[in-house]
Nucleic acid binder design. Structure first.
Length: 173
DNA sequence: GCCAACGTTGGC
DNA sequence: GCCAACGTTGGC
């Protein structure tokens, strides 16, 4: 961290730009599951259909190539099921102006897009999913956005420390 | 299926 | 700008 008011040095700026960030993306497996991602060409998919401004802002402005993503299944047996990587940064979600898409929004146009998405590529599908109820008991995850009451964000930040803990759980540590 | 907690919409 | 009504998310 840099103290408030202090001018950033070039090294620090480079570090900030280069340092990876960590995210969690939710999906209803009935809509799009990690197995669907595996079947996608190159293991890559665009994360279309997000119609929430906070989640959009994260995808449009904050997610960068190389950032790592926890893939989460919501619904039945909610759990973190795998790991992915951002391979394309925010660009307009063209499904918004496709009236036949699952989440059309007539207010969004190619000229003035409202909704944005990123592309992610599968890295790993965990051998064993990590259930939400297990995460609730893990020391160090107390402040994880996913576990906060009422937090419904479908694209959310994860602290590096939290990310590392979740990964260690996946490896059975 | 229930419902709490949000987000969005639209009248005023 | 307020806020009631409505829609959605998502765990349980």
């Amino acid at each position: 961290m840099v103290a408030a008011g202090k001018t950033l040095g070039l090294t620090e700026v480079k570090l900030m730009v280069k340092s990876k960030k960590y995210w969690l993306m939710k999906s209803e497996p009935g809509a799009f599951s990690i197995d669907d991602l595996i079947k996608s060409p190159g293991g890559i998919t665009c994360w279309d259909g997000v119609r929430n401004y906070q989640a959009r802002n994260i995808m449009r402005d904050e997610m960068k190539k190389g950032d790592r993503v926890l893939f989460y299944h919501s619904g039945k047996n909610p759990s973190v099921v795998g790991l992915a990587e951002v391979v394309r940064e925010g660009y307009p979600d063209h499904t918004a102006w496709d009236e036949n898409s699952v989440h059309p929004d007539p207010k969004s146009t190619p000229e003035k897009p409202i909704w944005y998405m990123v592309d992610i590529r599968l890295e790993t599908k965990f051998e064993k999913p990590i259930p939400l109820k297990e995460l609730r008991n893990v020391k160090g995850l107390e402040n994880m956005v996913l576990l906060k009451k009422g937090m419904r964000l479908s694209v959310q930040p994860v602290a590096k420390k939290e990310f590392d803990i979740v990964l260690s759980l996946a490896k059975g540590a």
